[in-house]
């Protein structure tokens, strides 16, 4: 039996996992750990990609400097949003939800009016194809895989080993108790938003280098990020790995054996089942 297609699909699945984990990391930090109801996370992701497009195509900068500039500026935007939009409504998730809805409308349409609805493209300097055992995968995707898992590891270490990280975990479990202990929830939230949005921007930038960018690309990112977090576990970074791997493998392998529509349904179905039978996700704690 020819194992190549099977092997290729596993490689495809892993590459997708890398993408999904990257996309979910930021949201995990913001929503899952700090509890900020940030539904416009997809639009932040989209913003990162468009900034790089503007910097590289319009201003002619190189890819990697643009990437860093974009990540930083989007992070700052996140801090601003936290201060203006989310901090005043920390206690009421409904109002935060409504604000992020408004943010979705605003961000999507600002980009639409500035750059148009046409898909745009830009490329990263990474090119070439890695081939082994009859399987092929572009270096761009391998790069995303490395970055995704690498950042995950870094975040993991930071959260478990540093005081700030521990403070975040404490805040995620019991906000009032944490602040009684002298933990500054405000600064933590700002930090979480900075890092979370920067990560979202990174994900958007790398995805944009692989495919094309368009104003509504955020909804895909949001759906996948939510799926990963729910599957893997709320409040857990390790869960994000599990969720990302599972979802990536489903999306990579299943369409090879059935149709894309059915694969999509299985993906959603798996999440719904997990939510019903193990609402805290596979590795979550709540």
């Amino acid at each position: 039996m020819d194992l190549t297609p099977f092997l290729q699909s596993i490689v495809n699945g892993l590459a997708l996992s890398g993408i999904y984990i990257l996309v979910a990391l930021g949201l995990a930090l913001v929503l899952s750990i700090m509890g900020i109801v940030q539904i416009s996370h997809g639009e932040i992701y989209m913003l990162g990609a468009y900034i790089v497009y503007g910097l590289t195509k319009v201003l002619g900068l190189d890819f990697f400097p643009s990437l860093l500039i974009s990540m930083f500026s989007v992070g700052l935007v996140g801090v601003l949003l936290e201060r203006l939009c989310f901090r005043p409504f920390r206690g009421s998730p409904d109002r935060a939800f409504t604000i992020s809805l408004a943010l979705i409308l605003i961000l999507q349409n600002v980009v639409l009016s500035m750059a148009g609805g046409d898909p745009h493209t830009y490329t990263s300097p990474i090119s070439g194809v890695l081939r082994f055992f009859g399987v092929a995968i572009s270096w761009k995707r391998v790069f995303i895989l490395i970055v995704g898992f690498g950042l995950l590891l870094l975040l993991f270490v930071l959260v478990k080993r540093t005081k700030v990280g521990q403070a975040m975990l404490a805040a995620s479990q019991e906000k009032d108790g944490a602040s009684l202990l002298g933990i500054d929830i405000d600064s933590l939230s700002a930090l979480a938003m900075f890092v979370g949005c920067a990560l979202a921007a990174l994900a958007g930038i790398l995805m944009g280098s692989l495919f094309s960018i368009y104003p509504t690309m955020g909804s895909f990112a949001l759906m996948k990020a939510m799926a990963v977090i729910i599957l893997g576990g709320l409040g857990s970074l390790g869960g994000a790995v599990i969720g990302g791997l599972l979802l990536g493998l489903i999306d990579g392998i299943l369409p090879v054996f059935t149709t894309t529509h059915i694969a999509g349904m299985v993906g959603f179905g798996a999440i719904i089942l997990v939510l019903i039978f193990r609402p805290q996700g596979i590795a979550g704690h709540e």
Binding site: G252, I253, P255
Partner: peptide, 10 residues
């Protein structure tokens, strides 16, 4: 769709 890896594999 922009990711055709699974489809093309098939």
């Amino acid at each position: 769709t922009e990711d055709f890896y699974p489809l093309l594999t098939k």
